[in-house]
């Protein structure tokens, strides 16, 4: 199981500003190890962010997203104290879900 995501969600005016840092190798499948063998691709493919039962962002990623992926976006309709939930699934079927509480601006 991968390490927890670091999620910051805080109010910026009437919007919720979300910054998330995930812990993942994001191996491209192009790289060779010391013996010259290809290191198999291992990367996050799907990311979903939900708030109050509604998807506020969904993404499909390829292996070109950097190691330990970072994402920053904003959505309307959230209030301090409410939760933002973020899930990812990678190409090997590993997955992780974490949540954060929206803090005041």
């Amino acid at each position: 199981m991968a390490d927890p995501m670091r999620i910051r969600a805080n109010m910026a005016g009437d919007k919720v500003e979300v910054r998330v840092l995930m812990s993942h190798e994001m191996e491209t499948g192009q790289r060779k190890d010391a013996k010259g063998d290809i290191v198999p691709a291992h990367f996050i493919q799907n990311v979903t962010v939900t708030h109050a039962g509604k998807t506020v962002l969904s993404a499909q990623w390829g292996p070109a997203i950097s190691k330990n992926p970072f994402m920053h976006f904003r959505f309307k309709g959230g209030k301090p104290g409410e939760k933002v939930t973020i899930s990812w699934v990678d190409n090997k079927g590993d997955k992780r879900t974490d949540e954060a509480t929206i803090s005041g601006g």
């Binding site: 491209t28 509604k54 998807t55 292996p63 070109a64 997203i65």
Partner: peptide, 29 residues
Amino acid sequence: MIEKNPNTLSANFEIPDGTDPFVTTRVKM
């Protein structure tokens, strides 16, 4: 999309109503 990467598409974000048409991430080139 990064034209000269082995595959062009890096990421596709779907933006529902209520979410700003704005996103930041980090990519490999």
